[in-house]
C-alpha cells in the first residue's frame, strides 16, 4: 500500500471548517427530521391501534407506503418529482423560493420516512401494554381517549425507549442521504476533502469518529433516561 499519511490536513483551512460545518448540518437535519418523525409517528402508531377500521387503514397505508420505497428514491421524489406535480408557481417556490430548499426537503423527507418506523414501534408498544390494561381502563368508565392519555401512552412510551433510541440513531445515520440532493453534511464534506486532497483515510476516519462519538453519547444519555423512567418493581419490558 502506497499512501502518504498527513493527519495535519484535517486541521488546515478550509478543511477543518468543512468538517465542522458538515457536522452541524448532520445534527440539524437529524434533529428537525426527528421532531417530525416522532410527532407524526406517534399519531400513525396510535391510529393503528384504534377500534376504527378506517383509522387503522390510514395508519397501515401510511406505513406500507413509506417503508416500501427506498429512502433515496423518496429523496428524489420529493426533490425532483414533487415540484413538477404542483401548479407552476408553487412548484417554483418549492424549488427556489422556500428557504434552504435542499435542507428543508431532506429534513421533511427523512421525517416522513422515519415516522413510518416510529409508528411501528409505537404500535408495538401499545399492543405490548395489552388488552387487559385497556379493558381495565374502560371498565372504570374512562373514555377511549382517556385510556390512551392516562394508561396506554405513558406505559408504552416507557417500554419503547430503547427502540426509539435506535430509530433516532437511524435518522442520524440516514441524514447522510441528504448529500444526494446537495446538502453538504458530514459524509459529503469528508468525501469532498478526499477529492480535494487525496487524503481519504484521514477524512473518512474523522467522519467515522464523529458518527461513533454521537452514537455513543446518545446511547449513554438514553440509558440514563431509561433508568429514570423505569417503573419501580417492574422488570423493564423493553430490556433486551
Amino acid at each position: 500500500m502506497n499512501y502518504n499519511w498527513d493527519w495535519g490536513v484535517l486541521l488546515q483551512e478550509p478543511y477543518f471548517d468543512w468538517l465542522v460545518s458538515g457536522f452541524s448540518w448532520t445534527i440539524t437535519v437529524s434533529l428537525v427530521a426527528w421532531v417530525l418523525a416522532f410527532s407524526l409517528g406517534s399519531i400513525v402508531g396510535i391510529l393503528r391501534t384504534t377500534d376504527s377500521k378506517f383509522l387503522r387503514a390510514i395508519g397501515t397505508g401510511y406505513v406500507e407506503f413509506f417503508r416500501n420505497i427506498p429512502l433515496l428514491v423518496q429523496m428524489f421524489l420529493w426533490y425532483f418529482v414533487f415540484p413538477e406535480l404542483l401548479p407552476e408557481s408553487a412548484g417554483m417556490w418549492v424549488k427556489r423560493g422556500m428557504p434552504m430548499p435542499e435542507f428543508t426537503t431532506a429534513a421533511i423527507c427523512l421525517g416522513l420516512y422515519t415516522a413510518s418506523r416510529v409508528g411501528e414501534q409505537v404500535r408495538a408498544g401499545i399492543l405490548a401494554v395489552g388488552i387487559g390494561q385497556r379493558n381495565a381502563g374502560l371498565a372504570m368508565g374512562l373514555t377511549p381517549a382517556q385510556v390512551y392519555r392516562f394508561v396506554l401512552v405513558p406505559v408504552s412510551y416507557r417500554i419503547i425507549i430503547p427502540p426509539l433510541t435506535s430509530e433516532f440513531l437511524t435518522i442520524f445515520k440516514n441524514s447522510s442521504l441528504a448529500l444526494t440532493i446537495g446538502v453538504l453534511e458530514l459524509t459529503a464534506q469528508a468525501r469532498q476533502i478526499e477529492e480535494y486532497t487525496f487524503q481519504g483515510f484521514e477524512a473518512f476516519t474523522a467522519a467515522t469518529l464523529l458518527y461513533i462519538c454521537v452514537t455513543s453519547i446518545v446511547m449513554l444519555i438514553m440509558r440514563v433516561v431509561e433508568g429514570k423512567a423505569a417503573i419501580p418493581g417492574m422488570i423493564s419490558l423493553g430490556a433486551k
Binding site: M1, K173, S176, T187, R191, G200, F201, F204, Y211, T215
Partner: peptide, 21 residues
C-alpha cells in the same frame, strides 16, 4: 452499526483499489 451506509460505501470505494494497488 454506528456508521451510515453511504460512508461505508465511500470508505471501501477509496480503500479497495488502494489495498489492491
Amino acid at each position: 452499526r454506528s456508521m451510515p451506509l453511504i460512508l461505508v460505501i465511500f470508505w471501501f470505494y477509496f480503500l479497495v483499489p488502494l489495498l489492491l494497488g
